[in-house]
Design a protein around this nucleic acid. Sequence first.
DNA 1: ACAGTGAATAATGCATACACTTTGCGATGT
DNA 2: ACATCGCAAAGTGTATGCATTATTCACTGT
Lengths: 225, 225
Amino acid sequence: MSASPTIEKVARQTLHSEVTSRLRDLIVQGHFAPGERINEVRLGQDLGVSRTPLREAIRTLGSEGILALVPNRGAVVRAFSMQDVVDMIEALSVIEQGCALLACEKATPAELDLFQQRHLAMLAAYRSRERLHYFQLNQQLHGLIVSFARNQTLMAVHEDIQAKLKRIRFLGNDDPAVWARAVAEHNRIAAFLQRRDYDGLASVLRAHKDLTIERIRKSADGRVL
Amino acid sequence: MSASPTIEKVARQTLHSEVTSRLRDLIVQGHFAPGERINEVRLGQDLGVSRTPLREAIRTLGSEGILALVPNRGAVVRAFSMQDVVDMIEALSVIEQGCALLACEKATPAELDLFQQRHLAMLAAYRSRERLHYFQLNQQLHGLIVSFARNQTLMAVHEDIQAKLKRIRFLGNDDPAVWARAVAEHNRIAAFLQRRDYDGLASVLRAHKDLTIERIRKSADGRVL
DNA sequence: ACAGTGAATAATGCATACACTTTGCGATGT
DNA sequence: ACATCGCAAAGTGTATGCATTATTCACTGT
């Protein structure tokens, strides 16, 4: 053990993992449309890799639920129905509610402070109408509640579902009134969490879920997701 | 559509999916010990397939969290710490509690009847001390609550976690007193569900989770999982 | 015109071959 | 005796080639 502690391992990833994240990003960013078929040969050439690591990446994304794998017909980008999306949002909410209870028990004062701080930052982003920044902080806050529960499984599941929804959530949604309501709910969430009031927290989170579903329904409006 | 409805498609699976379930079963049934490394060449020969579909299966199981994939060193069967297992049980409980609320709203009378019927069957299995049968019905009952919520995402997640736990749950656990307590709790679960009493249901499910954790802790007792 | 057929084309599924990395072990020198 | 080095064996990572299955499209017959 002669190496100084400042030296860290060189990043030597496998092609497989690299291709997996590249492809995941391509899909999430809408480079492939929902329902579109993935051509292994062409995509392999575009990415500059052979079909082998690409196929492994496709299997991984299939298992993540981002791609649908059809025997002898390859992979297509999964198209979500409105019900699918509603289910995912509901599932996120269920997890967050469960984590809220655990968080009220387990969160340290420092963590609660951190949450309030991020919450204030989000309010600032709202006041200056910085949509993207607001959006990111919003996601972060929900993630913080989950992380306070100190449960690896719940964190992983929460992130998985959020990843699938990423493509959807970027949809339009520009009703100022709805946005204002969402912010108001976040204020209540922050307050309940500070007081470690689980029941209040759970009920706001449920309302928040309903609002999110309403928002998505409006902005999607029959489109294929 | 000229085919008669009695004709069904010939089952023409891909090797990849076949190998995936075979390997998953092998791991769950303990054919590979936790921490054990998977030798691609040897396993491929044993299963009678080349490394290509086997590697794809390994990627899939890695994404499922059953295998850990180490770059340039292949795959090892994931060894769970006690904390990991506790997290998974807690996560199952969070999902079941959330589903319980939805189930109380959405379950049809016929579904509630089905639940009671299975519950009685489980009691019978308890009285005759048929462990395996009891165990299966127990799992089924928990799954039923989740299915009543009519949420594909929550169902999928619940099943995923249960699959990971399968290996663990078969562990010893033979304290008659604990078993009796579990049955008593199930009686209360059945009663609350029949009355669509969400709060009662949630609190019993939380207690049930604590009992399960206690049970696993006792029977595992420091062993590697 | 149009439904149906069949061959050519293209794409996926699987196996194999080669390259690179890790690992085990013995030789070497101190 | 012990640590180090280096080499051979084993194993994983990637590319490529062949087999099989879908898809396309021109052709045929009604």
